[in-house]
Write a protein that binds this DNA or RNA. Structure first.
Length: 418
RNA sequence: GGAGGGAUCGCAUAGUGGUCUAGUGCGGCCGCCUGCUAAGCGGUUACCCCGAGAAAUUGGGGUCGAGGGUUCGAAUCCCUCUCCCUCCGCCA
């Protein structure tokens, strides 16, 4: 959420910044709501103060009178009418504020869409093969480790089953990534709930605008997380963190659930885009002055996974038009997949500034006795699984149709299975 | 799912309709005293919103798990919900 005070004091800046996202937003409307909210709030508080004084008089039996009682009743009615008006305006204002995306960081390059993103760096070279490399869906079926038909039988389109060595590989990757981030990058491991309350999705920025991409149990009002970023953002909701604990770095494995109904027909081949996938997520709560630097660190931590696995990747900086709703600055990490011949997004590392912290009300106290302030939050996959699996299968395939195990995974793959 | 008990300013607790501007103890912080430490003494100790001010500050309002109701007036009475505890049922 954008600070209403910033909008109030600098509406042109906010308007101009949001326009960089190549979309339009009702900043003027919000300003009007803000004015009328504060006007009716002030009137209400004035009446309340008066009412309070009279009430004090009433507490003394000798000052009680039928006239005073009557007057207070009248005032009381007036206050509740005003109260209704005030809270209506306030919730309208809040609802509007919740639909505004974050303000892009001034360093983010201008652009309309993904085609304006810029490659920041590339690690490794796209691998060349003395034979025609197969796409993972063919490798998966040949090796009998990915079962598309049974996935559809069990759950419908965009579901698949990993079998034997394939399932084992995924499980090993999860352990490898968690171990690496905990042992070598200083993150604390979290196992979060995969179903959360509505307000968690509001805190992370998925609601109210993007509900159509989420699975929801209406009976119990549980929401299935589209990423572990959601429970992690809300882990410290309504808390005031100790300044000396910052930055707090968390790593969480979770399954993720997404409807993906807008892209029916696209990316249907293979395991690139499903309704359910696994992911290891990195998350940081930082002091505002450190968040830019911490984004570089977090991105490097995700990149390190790709490097240890010997996979070619590139880091792409998103332009203003392609930035996610909650993000002010984002780097995507894309792995090269020689079989399907494309760069696969396996991580999106974002600095959300105080946007999510404001929504989830996560604060800290910079100095003892100082006013509380919102922290900055960062997130990024470290990294997403099906696509990592794709990259390993396609990069490590051999002429005879087998797939080698990356050296870093060897300790995790000692169990032999078909 | 059933029955009962509970939720108060970091922690513990008091408060059963107006004097609550929520008391007290502990802990924390500041100061005094003091060879040192402990003790003692004094002060201080939440969060949010609106207004004034360049600022330090300052005026007002709100918050006793959440929301509604009764009343001139609610921490206190009534209703609904959430969470926690005990027991029963059911399970991994």
């Amino acid at each position: 959420m954008i600070d209403i005070k910033l909008i109030r004091e600098n509406p042109d800046f906010v308007q101009r910044s949001l326009e960089k996202r190549n979309d339009t937003f009702a900043v003027g409307e919000i300003l009007e709501l803000d004015v009328s909210y504060r006007k009716s709030l002030q009137r209400q508080e004035q009446f309340r103060a008066q009412h309070k004084k009279m009430s004090k008089q009433m507490s003394n039996p000798s000052e009680r009178s039928p006239e005073l009682t009557l007057e207070m009743r009248r005032l009381g009615n007036e206050i509740s009418a005003l109260q209704e008006e005030t809270s209506k305006t306030r919730s309208d204002l809040e609802a509007s504020l919740l639909t505004l995306p974050n303000i892009p960081h001034e360093s983010v390059p201008l652009g309309n869409d993904a085609s304006d993103n810029t490659v920041v760096r590339t690690w490794g070279e796209p691998k060349t093969f003395p034979f025609e490399p197969l796409p993972h869906w063919e490798l998966g079926e040949k090796l009998n480790i990915i079962d598309f038909q049974r996935g559809v039988k069990l759950s419908g389109s965009r579901f698949y089953v990993l079998k034997g060595w394939g399932a084992h590989l995924q499980r090993s990757l999860i352990s490898f990534m968690l171990d690496t981030h905990v042992r070598d990058h200083g993150y604390r491991e979290i196992y979060p709930p995969f179903m959360v309350k509505r307000e968690c999705l509001v805190g992370s920025g998925n609601l109210p605008k993007f509900g159509d991409n989420l699975y929801h149990d209406k009976e119990e009002d549980y929401w299935f997380i589209p990423t572990a970023e959601v429970p992690l953002t809300n882990f410290h909701r309504d808390e005031i963190l100790d300044a000396e604990d910052l930055p707090l770095s968390y790593v969480a494995y979770s399954t993720c659930f997404r409807r993906e109904k807008m892209t029916a027909g696209k990316d249907t081949r293979g395991i690139k885009r499903g309704h359910q996938f696994d992911k290891v997520e990195l998350y940081k709560f930082t002091r505002p002055e450190n968040s830019d630097e911490d984004l570089e660190k977090l991105t490097a931590d995700a990149e390190d996974i790709c490097q240890r696995l010997g996979l070619t990747y590139r880091v792409v900086q998103l332009c203003t038009g392609d930035l996610g709703f909650a993000s002010r600055k984002t780097y995507d990490i894309e792995l090269w997949a020689p079989g399907c011949n494309e760069w696969l997004e396996v991580s999106s590392c974002s600095n959300c500034g105080d946007f999510q912290a404001r929504r989830a009300n996560v604060r800290y106290r910079p100095e003892p006795g100082a006013r509380t302030q919102f922290v900055h939050t960062l997130n990024g996959s470290g990294v997403a699984l099906p696509r990592l699996l794709i990259a390993i299968l396609e990069n490590y395939q051999q002429a005879n149709g087998t797939v080698l195990i990356p050296e870093a995974l060897a300790p995790y793959m000692e169990l032999r299975q078909g």
